[in-house]
Computed example of a mutant assay.
Amino acid sequence: MITITSHIHSTRIGPLGLIELRRPTSINALTFSMLQELTRVFTTWRNDPAISMVVLRGSGERGFCAGGDIKDFHAAVSGGGHAEFLALLSLEFDLNEMIATYPKPVLTLVHGLCMGGGIGLASHASIRVTTPEASYAMPETRIGYSPDVGGTHLLARAPGHLGEYLALTASTFTGTDAVELGFADMLVDPTRFAELLDSLDDFIAMPAAEIAAGIEVLFGSFAPSPLASARPWIDAAFSAPDLPGILDRLDEMVHPAAAQTAAAIRANAPTSLAGALAAVRAARAEDHLRSALDRELRLADYLMHRPDLAEGIRAQVIDKDRNPRWNPARFDEVDTAAIAGLIEGPA
């Protein structure tokens, strides 16, 4: 049985359920209808005794998934569609949690670009395969937003203070870094993806951990993580108690990457930076995906009603002048009390 709906292709091959994102011209960027169909398929297969494992991958050479459709986001926040877009995010976050708690093994195959919502689909699965050359990012603070789709939960669990570094700088990282950070489990050359899929019949009856171990033995490779080698200076700076302290430490460092890192942070939206830092640290203290998702949804609702999000998308995606005018423009003008209330949540 094959179903093709809203750029989602799902099919069964014996006990294996295969889902493919099929919007390659947009690097499989997610729309509301795609999220609805993904939710429907995962829900149906969860209770189908004929399905023992689910595989999720993206079509096209450019990548697994570029995240949510950023132009749809801009249209929503610019045209009064805040409630509708918040409903989309709620649906997406529930799907992320479903994947994370799925009662059957979920295998994700990441190649090329994997950003934002793509990470939400790929990195909460029980078996996460990526390629060394894959390019991951949680670039939200660059557009006046904050990491979501459980991204703060993932960043909080990364070694040391790499999570704060990635949230505040909006930097990209490689597939090898993704394994180091805990966003993926193993590296596999993309030319072996077809062979890997053909081998899954041998693993169908096994628990997810054993399937992952078997795949890594047969197909896994190793490459050093650039971020792992940078941890000493990153931890030294990003362990500071607050954003001004992090910037002060970077400004005082003689490490060649410190000045560039500080400049990258200062280019991002001050309100988003405050929210992202607080959300990552709250997720580290709590270490519960659902709590992180609920916190991210509160932040999303707050940020999409502020001018920075529409302005950031305009500057980075629409006009591409790369010169956003943040409001407020200074870190000391951010409403930190409002951010703290969102992080803490309802009493």
Rank of each mutant, 00 (worst) to 15 (best):
F173M: 00
A264V: 04
A237L: 07
P105Y: 08
F32T: 14
S229N: 09
S123F: 09
K320E: 14
R46P: 00
R12E: 06
E333S: 15
H9G: 01
L109M: 13
A178N: 06
L18T: 01
G275P: 04
K71W: 04
P232L: 03
I215Y: 06
A50S: 14
A236V: 01
L227F: 05
M34S: 04
D72T: 14
L181F: 09
W233M: 00
L89G: 04
R266N: 09
Y165R: 09
A282N: 03
L299G: 06
I204F: 10
P232I: 04
A276G: 06
I127L: 13
A274S: 15
A87T: 04
A87D: 12
T131V: 03
A269K: 01
L86V: 07
E97R: 14
S6C: 06
G160D: 10
H153M: 08
L247H: 10
R128P: 00
G80R: 03
L35I: 15
V110W: 08
N327Q: 10
I246E: 02
L95R: 08
D48F: 12
P270V: 01
P132M: 09
R231E: 10
V54E: 07
G163P: 04
T11V: 04
R306D: 06
E216Q: 14
A223Y: 06
F203S: 09
D202L: 08
D69V: 06
G117I: 05
G214S: 10
Y165M: 10
F183K: 11
I13A: 03
R57I: 02
G275E: 00
G68W: 05
P270F: 02
R231F: 03
L187M: 08
H111E: 09
S171L: 02
D148K: 06
D335F: 13
A276R: 04
A75C: 02
P324F: 08
P328S: 02
D148H: 14
E84F: 11
E344M: 12
N327K: 05
T271V: 14
T11G: 03
Q36R: 12
N28A: 05
A87F: 02
F203C: 07
A75V: 02
L91S: 14
I119D: 09
P270E: 01
R295I: 08
P346Y: 12
M1K: 11
L21S: 07
M115V: 14
E92Q: 11
V55Q: 14
L38G: 06
A156L: 13
A347M: 03
T172W: 00
E37M: 03
V254P: 07
I127S: 11
T5L: 01
H153G: 05
N96L: 02
E333R: 15
